[in-house]
Amino acid sequence: MNDDRHDELHDETIAELYRQTRAVGPPSWLDQRVLKAAESAVEPRPASRLKARKSRWMVPLALAATVVLTTGVLRMADEAGEFRGLSSPEPARSKVEAAGAASADIGNTRLLQDQRVRSSLPEAASPAAVLSAEVPASAPAAASPAARLEGAISRSARQEASDSARQEASDAALSKTAPAKPAAAPPQAPAAEAKKPDRLEKAAPAEPQARRERLDRSPEQWLKDIAELRRQGRMAEADERLAEFRRRYPDYPLGALEAAPR
């Protein structure tokens, strides 16, 4: 209301004259529009609430679906070997090598699971790179790396007199490939690689469990076993294991084994 304490700010004549001008007001259509807006703002709208409830779940649902789909696609791609080329330390692999690696990956998984093949190559070399080391880049696509590996194994199998012809063939093949690709990895590299999960091993259930376990052992444990064989007087077997160990870990120091009695 008018401030009585400030009479100098109030002129009754002017106020009276002004009051006579108050007949004007907003048009009726404007009244109806404002009142309608006010009513609709507070009236319950179940349909819109349901819509709001739906939209509240839409974002989390979409995010969850995205995560599930992405995870599934990534797993499928990983299992199909789509990412193997990305982890290779040699980025410029030829397509022929990649194709050969893929075909060998499918057709010769039992040989691929032999970790000695990988141990003869630099650390972090993918299975595709391992096979491509065996197959020349200029080799025709029809002669798959898997076939070449099989040939190498069969040739060397005749030179070995061991428990399993297949196992020894693989060993012999490795003995030929190892000098061609000298291992530049440090001694701990094979151990680290041996700990890596190998899906190809999972795909080869026919591999003898004992051999796989032996291959999966750490170098230290391997040397301990050889020393134990020597202690038991099983020298031939110990030498055989030692030769196998050297192929797998050519640079690993044998200090502990040398100290053991022969």
Binding site: T21, R22, V24, P26, D31, V34, L35, A38, E39, V42
Partner: peptide
């Protein structure tokens, strides 16, 4: 009106619409 009484707004509007309109006019 804040709690949903549209009739309360109608009374407010009726009370203030003229002065507000004239002020703006």
């Amino acid at each position: 009106y804040q709690h949903g009484d549209a009739g309360a707004f109608a009374r407010l509007y009726e009370r203030h619409k003229g002065p507000l309109y004239r002020y703006l006019l």
